[in-house]
Amino acid sequence: MSTTYIASLELASGAVLLSAVMTLWRRGVRSIVTMLSLQGIALAAVAMVLALHEHERALLVTGALVFVVKGLVVPTLLRRVSRLDPRSRESRPLVNVPASLVFAAVLIVLAYVVGTRITSLAPSHATHLAPLGLATVLVGYFMLVTRRRAVSKIVGLILVDNGIALVTFLLTSGVPLIVELGSSLDVLLVVVVLQFLMVSMRHHSDTDQLTEMKALHD
């Protein structure tokens, strides 16, 4: 039981980070969204594994919620957007892909260094994996900073959010249900809002202004 628990937890958590790095590597929207979907499922798996191990019913519910929201709904929404905009390849990121990957590695190391300070408070198999979540946050944020396309921004945001969720699960086995519910709903809503904005903007103006929005400045 214990080794299975540890192995599955490590596998799922690793999958979360790995899929984050993969999104940085890939350029096509479709494959990125697939990665995101995989990540959502892995995240849900983490929650499930933890829930089974700690016999937390609330966490089980959360896991299910995560599976639905992050594994299914959000990727579906994103796919719809990408169908609307077939050209939205991240063709010219601000930092090119190889450099991004190197930087991601640096970020992962940083996350590990910082993470150990946190995990030392309550060392356990679960908490030891928390740096993976932190690394996911950083990689996601890095994606936000360096990618130009609007879809990439949404993906980056979701990556950050997934990373935080991973940290939450691993460190605390989930925050109180009401908070978890609220945060998941919020993420969903944010994605909806962003999607709405993208669609409205596209309808509104002919040119694809999403990449270079610099009309408002000082």
């Binding site: 940083l110 910082v114 944020y141 900073v145 360096t146 130009r148 610099k214 400045h217 000082d218």
Partner: peptide, 28 residues
């Protein structure tokens, strides 16, 4: 100073990212 706020959201995000990294390095 106006050039700081040149309208690029990537730059704005970068401000925060750098701050986050600084926080992690300093605090962590």
């Amino acid at each position: 100073a106006r050039r700081l706020q040149n309208g690029s959201i990537n730059r704005y995000l970068a401000f925060g990212f750098v701050a986050l990294l600084v926080v992690l390095v300093v605090v962590g």
